[in-house]
Design a protein around this nucleic acid. Structure first.
Lengths: 118, 118
DNA sequence: CTGCATCCTCAAAGATACTG
DNA sequence: CAGTATCTTTGAGGATGCAG
């Protein structure tokens, strides 16, 4: 879907924007309650252990955290690094694809900060 | 919350990012299943009647549409323009604040289009 | 420490019928 | 045409216990 003012189209496909629009796809990857938070922390701190993420994401259940980490991993946005130790140690970091969200998140952050104050 | 690599902070407030982070605020306004779609259509087509929106938002219930339009109006992202006619005619358009989402939506669209193809 | 399985809750969303 | 009012459904997310 084209959301640029200059050359708006009106073909039939536009109706199904949820399916074929970039925004729809983007949201399918980072939408929902927790994913953006997880990405933000990993963007800030490079590499975090499972327990470190759990401590930062106030209120998240272990079930949700694991679920979302799995989805992010499957979508190639984060890497899961297993250290073969006892006790186990697992770290998560952004992939290059995950890193590429930085610009969007910064923009959303700026927008929010700016309009929050009013 | 600061998600810019260069000057990452680590103060205690960062933990509660959902409350005081711009992203959290932004998402509270445009999160959920339908709002971004509505904004996108209004960004494309300037001004749309209630029925026009309903026809474009495939699958939305009237209840949801009204609900989301109300929320967007309360958050000052759209204007509701009532034409005192019979039959009634109501149009919706973006406010300046609503327009200011264009940059973010374009970025999300670009990201999606780019990575959708892979 | 990291993670999975099970059961449960509740709010968001859907369906339907109706009105000024 | 542009909504409202109910009722029902669904599924995302929460709580808990257990395991490698």
């Amino acid at each position: 879907m084209n959301i640029r003012k200059e050359n708006s189209t009106n073909n039939i496909n536009e109706i199904y924007w949820k399916e074929n629009c970039g925004i729809g796809f983007t949201l399918s990857l980072i939408g929902g309650r927790w994913k953006i938070n997880i990405l933000s922390y990993l963007l800030n701190e490079e590499k975090l252990r499972y327990s470190e993420l759990k401590n930062r994401l106030i209120g998240i259940s272990e079930r949700m955290l694991i679920l979302k980490l799995k989805e992010l991993e499957q979508d190639k946005l984060i890497n899961r690094i297993v250290h073969p130790e006892v006790p186990p140690k697992v770290e998560y970091e952004l992939t290059e694809l995950g890193q590429s969200f930085r610009e969007i998140l910064i923009l959303m952050d700026k927008w929010g900060e700016k309009n929050l104050k009013k």
